[in-house]
Design a protein around this nucleic acid. Structure first.
Length: 562
DNA sequence: ACAGACCGCGCC
DNA sequence: AAAGGGCGCGGTCTGT
């Protein structure tokens, strides 16, 4: 059983039961309290909830203490299906999907909220008004039925169905993670900052340690003040000192022999800590012992999540010291080891690479097979293949890989050729890359004309190669995102079923998840994680010798997980 | 004063 | 000749 549900004014809404083909299966109902109505039916029937957008509906339900098992997020599904049809970037809201179905002018999607949901007042959004004055519930029913037909009609239907189900489950996970928050010890964070930067300065002033380092830089340049935050000034200062540098990047400066380099590198490192994760960050993002970013499911074209606010996906190692489980609880942190190479092995069906990927350390196995035991070279070769490195130091090892693993290398090279030719490529479950831009196509067409100049041709070749690198990586990165999405869905279902009482998902970063749970349920949570990874591997890739092992650690502090 | 481009660097 | 994928964010720089 499914219920299509749309929110109305003041916490109310309307519901329509439908069958598995999306056809009406009972009378529509209007309710004063959507949360109460959902709670009752969830307990009694455990239906699949079909709603316009999880991030608009579910936070209010969670605030009312209502957790649901399953949903269909119409907007996320619409986005996947549009992308599959090569219509990437078209509006995906209920109103837009309805308008396309009804042949009406399609409204643009509203801009993303500038502030994370966690900082917004509840119930501040008015009910959506739809093109043609349609009732939102009727529109949602129609769009849902249409989406079910579109999925079923595709040759990749089963996998695409798995993808949209997993994506919707991820939307639930994201809302729940925002509500739970990442356990964060502001006192530990503050001590860490003081330790590195000196005591907290008055607003607008640099911390003591940064001021000292800036003095050292000036002294090393013969007393001339240089703003270390300005790449242009830094490059000029080195030029004046007779050691020209091509840029102010730290890996460039590291190779330079000059007394300003050491304090400058230290300055850059600490200035970044201060600017990105300093006291201002702490004031803005941590409340009541929790960091609450907004998670954006499918925010990256490859299907990876993005985040809004607080840089949740870029928490530096040093700052992870402040991520500490509550007393009596632990963080069970799991990361998929060498996920993307394993995904390539499974995707391509390369038996020889799959044999290496059956080992717990893929790179060592690869090194033993083809690189005389040199693990570092094996790693460079494989990553170069995934990212599209073709020359320089990587060339010889890439040649080895191509000779020994023609099926795997052929898979990504075919994806690269598709990209260079302007075609679409898809992930294992059908997530599809964006088509090339109009500008890109024009550049290719211009270069193909007989009158095209050398510069036009070079530009077009460059653009084609760039897109080839993108699509080459897309098939692997997006398939890895497929796997991770299915893992999250499988994990969430197990947690909800009570497999690890008191455990909740609090963090997800591409190939890594953290569960916050009572100490005594940590072993159970770890077991659920392993089961979820096995389920994801089976559902996404079917029978394959490739293993997708999780490294799992139960720790009090996130920084100790690795 | 503000917007947007670019740089540099954190994460995967 | 060389040729490295995806993000978010805060800083400077440049143009209006």
């Amino acid at each position: 059983m499914r219920y299509v549900v749309v929110p109305g004014a003041a916490g109310g809404g309307s519901l329509q039961p439908v069958d598995d083909r999306g056809t009406s299966a009972g009378p529509m109902e209007e309710v004063d309290s959507l949360a109460a109505a959902v709670a009752v039916r969830e307990r009694a029937e455990h239906p699949r909830w079909v709603w316009p957008a999880t991030d608009e509906v579910y936070p209010d339900l969670l605030a009312a203490g209502v957790v649901v098992g399953r949903c269909v997020d119409l907007a996320l599904t619409e986005g996947i299906l549009l992308g599959y049809d090569g219509r990437w970037g078209e509006a995906r809201s209920l109103g837009a999907a309805w308008a396309r179905l009804a042949g009406l002018p399609v409204p643009a999607d509203p801009p993303p909220r500038s502030r994370p949901a966690a900082q917004q007042a509840l119930f501040e959004t008015a009910p959506e008004s739809l093109p043609g004055g349609a009732a939102p519930l009727d529109a949602a029913v129609a769009v849902h039925a249409d989406q079910l037909r579109r999925v079923a009609g595709e040759p990749l239907g089963d996998r695409l169905g798995l993808l949209v189900a997993a994506e919707s489950a991820c939307a639930l996970v994201a809302a729940e993670m925002t509500r739970a928050g990442v356990p964060w010890r502001a006192d530990v964070h503050d001590a860490l900052l003081t330790d590195h930067l000196g005591p907290r300065p008055a607003a607008g002033l640099p911390p003591r340690r940064l001021a000292e380092l800036a003095d050292h830089v000036a002294a090393a340049f013969g007393g001339v003040r240089v703003n270390p935050d300005s790449p242009a000034e830094v490059v000029q200062a080195f030029a004046r000192a007779g050691v020209p540098v091509s840029s102010a990047r730290s890996f460039v400066l590291r190779r330079v022999d000059h007394p300003a380099v050491a304090p400058l590198l230290q300055y850059k490192e600490l200035a970044r800590l201060h600017a990105a994760h300093g006291w201002a960050w702490l004031d803005t993002w941590v409340r009541d012992g929790r960091f609450r970013p907004d998670w954006v499911v499918g925010g990256v074209v490859s299907g990876r999540w993005a985040s809004r606010g607080g840089g949740a996906l870029q928490i530096p190692q040093a700052v992870r010291r402040a991520v500490v489980a509550d007393p009596g609880r632990l963080l069970v942190v799991a990361d998929a080891a060498q996920l993307e190479p394993r995904v390539l092995a499974a995707l391509a069906g390369d038996e020889r690479l799959a044999a290496a990927a059956a080992a717990s350390d893929l790179y060592s196995a690869l090194a033993a097979d083809s690189f005389g035991g040199d693990r570092a070279r094996a790693k460079v070769a494989l990553l170069g293949t995934l990212y599209g490195a073709t020359g320089g130091d990587a060339a010889p090892v890439l040649a080895v890989l191509r000779r020994r693993f023609p099926t795997a290398v052929g898979y990504v090279e075919a994806a690269a050729r598709d990209g260079e030719a302007g075609r679409l490529v898809r992930s294992r479950l059908g997530r599809t890359c964006p088509p090339p831009s109009a500008r890109w196509r024009e550049a290719q067409e211009r270069a193909a004309l007989s009158a095209a100049g050398e510069a036009d041709q070079a530009r077009a070749r460059q653009a084609a190669r760039d897109r080839g690198r993108f699509t080459r990586n897309f098939v692997v990165q997006a398939s890895a995102a497929d796997w991770a999405a299915v893992l999250l869905a499988a994990l969430r279902r197990r947690l909800l079923a009570g497999g690890a009482p008191g455990a909740e998902l609090v963090f997800f970063q591409h190939d890594e998840v953290a569960v916050h749970c009572p100490e005594q349920t940590a072993p159970a949570a770890a077991a659920l994680l392993s089961e979820a990874a096995e389920e994801a591997s089976r559902l996404v890739f079917g029978p394959t010798p490739v293993r997708f092992p999780l490294g799992i650690a139960a720790v009090a502090c996130y920084a100790d997980a690795k």
